[in-house]
Amino acid sequence: MDLKPGFSEISLKLSNGNAWPVKLSIPQKIIEEKVPLVVALHWAVSANENEEFMNCLMIPAIDTSRYMIIAPLSQFHSWWEDPKERQVVRLINLVKEFWPVSQVIIAGYSDGGTGAVHFASNHPKLIDGAIAIAGYYRPASYKAPTYIIHGVRDQLFSYSRSKIILEKNQQKSDRLKFVSVETLSHYEACNYVNLLQKGMEWIEQNLD
């Protein structure tokens, strides 16, 4: 595939013949050198949720002159469930093999945040860093630098439960940072831009 700098949407053909829409943001510098990749996992599990997710959160927060962004659709599957988990793993492996990618950071919000930490804990050889916002967390150990942001007022995924789980996970993961946000709830995703920017800065400082 010819990587053209700028924003685009492509349709990947799956082995079953179905199409998998994916949004791309490609920096100009990819012509001369390898760039880090952000795999962006949108919220919810409906058919077309990555439009607002990209426009109001990911694109404003991530330096698109330095990072490539790839944002697939979940197509009614949670990111950690078959067949979507296998598809994302296959996608990342293909990108690492054929595209000029230096490192892979996975980032997501809500269902995408849950997916981001799932990949960070279950596929450590694929992922160099992870950022999760407003997700649902389970006992886990993260090998890669992992930055988790959670609003105290979250109505969908309990902040107090998240805090307990993540403090335990920090005992098993020496590069896990948990950031509490006093003022934000779950349904204010577009207000997390500055927090995601800080998460990207932290990931950059802690990448191997």
Rank of each mutant, 00 (worst) to 15 (best):
F119M: 12
I30S: 04
M54V: 02
I30C: 03
N93C: 01
E167T: 05
A134T: 06
E182I: 13
E188S: 04
W43M: 12
G6P: 10
N206K: 13
H42N: 01
H118R: 09
V179I: 15
K34C: 00
P124V: 09
I148P: 06
S185T: 11
N206G: 11
L37E: 08
V22H: 05
Q155Y: 04
Q28W: 06
V38Y: 08
S74D: 07
R175V: 08
I26D: 09
V152A: 10
L207V: 03
A189S: 15
N93P: 00
H186S: 08
I62P: 13
V193E: 11
Q87C: 02
S15K: 15
E52L: 11
I70K: 09
K23A: 10
V35A: 00
M68Q: 12
P72W: 08
L156C: 04
I105Q: 08
L176Q: 05
M54D: 10
P83H: 09
M200L: 14
V193T: 12
S78P: 00
H123E: 14
N194S: 14
Y142T: 05
M200Y: 08
N55V: 01
N194D: 15
V45H: 09
F76A: 01
Q103C: 00
L196D: 10
V35H: 01
Q170W: 00
V104K: 07
P72V: 06
D111M: 12
Q87S: 04
S102Y: 01
A120K: 11
A44T: 14
E182S: 14
L195H: 15
S180D: 15
N206S: 10
L41F: 02
I92S: 05
L14H: 10
W202T: 08
K84N: 11
I59C: 03
W80G: 08
Q197T: 12
S110L: 03
Q171C: 00
G6Q: 07
L207D: 07
I148N: 03
D154M: 03
D174P: 14
E201W: 03
L73G: 03
L207W: 06
N50S: 03
I164E: 15
R161C: 02
I62R: 11
S160E: 15
P72L: 03
E85L: 00
N191Q: 13
Q75Y: 04
Y147Q: 03
A144R: 07
Y159K: 04
H123N: 11
L41S: 01
R175L: 13
A189V: 06
E49W: 01
D174V: 02
L73P: 00
G151Q: 09
G115T: 07
H123Q: 14
Y147W: 15
E33L: 00
S121R: 10
V89C: 02
S158N: 09
I10Y: 03
K125W: 09
Q155R: 13
A47Y: 13
N16C: 04
L91I: 04
V152H: 14
F157Q: 08
F76L: 05
T146I: 03
